[in-house]
């Protein structure tokens, strides 16, 4: 498989983020088995797969919320395997977590400020927040409102905006479309597209395979903790196995 060959290559060469044979789990439960993948600078990569495949676990390992039990993680040539989460943000990886996880009893603006907690981000708070508000004008209207009172789509904007406040090089998005109405899902994918156009490198995890393949350049298929397939989006869309199992055609 392609992923395995990638793993054989010298680590981090050419790629922005390289995962090599990452395994991880919770207690005695193993959720990821020898996962390898690469994200090149400027790319948008999808990780797709069914519920419980280990997609969120993968994101948590990358952002340092969960420690990998084995394997290596390299970002811009720097090994990040056992680095705590707050240092990983410093290195330039921001994570939009599953279920958004906003601070519901803080205002929108305060949520954005927390996103800019790092000293390097604080210095650029004003320009960054102006930029985020320009990206999501809706949030400017609501910036004094408690985040918990917003609609699902608006909350997703805040979650993405909060992650962007740290001026990351790589944006991880965990199921941005989960729990949203179909119309809002379309908006969210538009957002992802716009963020791409702004030049961000994006790694996005989704169950919504059809729509995510329209947005990303390449994708990996994750099933029960293992990478099953990988390839360009266009190829995957044509892959009969994927069409049958996930797109329902």
């Amino acid at each position: 498989m392609a992923a395995d060959q990638n793993g054989q290559r010298s680590l981090g060469e050419g790629a922005m983020l390289t995962l090599c044979n990452i395994s991880a789990g919770y207690g005695s439960f193993r959720a990821l088995f020898d996962v390898s993948l690469e994200v090149g600078a400027g790319e948008a990569i999808g990780v797709v797969g069914p519920n419980g495949a280990g997609k969120s676990t993968l994101m948590r390992v990358i952002s340092g919320m969960l420690r990998a039990s084995s394997g290596e993680l390299v970002f811009e040539g720097r090994p990040l395997t056992h680095v705590p989460a707050h240092r990983i943000v410093e290195a330039g990886i921001a994570h939009v977590p599953e279920h958004r996880r906003l601070f519901a009893r803080l205002t929108v603006e305060e949520n954005l400020r927390i996103g800019a907690f790092l000293p390097q981000a604080r210095r650029h708070y004003v320009e960054r927040s102006e930029w985020v508000y320009a990206l999501f004008p809706r949030l400017l209207e609501r910036r004094r409102q408690l985040a918990g009172t917003l609609s699902g789509g608006e909350q997703q904007m805040v979650a993405i905006g909060r992650a962007l406040m740290s001026k990351p090089k790589l944006l991880l998005m965990d199921e941005p479309s989960a729990g949203l109405a179909p119309l809002v899902v379309d908006q969210v994918f538009d957002l992802v597209r716009r963020i791409r156009e702004e030049g961000y490198t994006v790694l996005i995890v989704e169950q919504n395979l059809q729509q995510v393949l329209d947005v990303v350049d390449r994708a990996y298929l994750l099933e029960v903790g293992r990478i099953r397939l990988s390839g360009l989006s266009a190829e995957l869309k044509k892959n009969p196995a994927i069409r049958k199992a996930y797109i329902g055609l």
Partner: peptide, 24 residues
Amino acid sequence: TYLGIAMRAIAQDREIMGLMGVDQ
């Protein structure tokens, strides 16, 4: 202050504070 807002946030969601670059 940033620190003060982080203190209020931490009570609401401890786990993701690291993602905000906050050293708990």
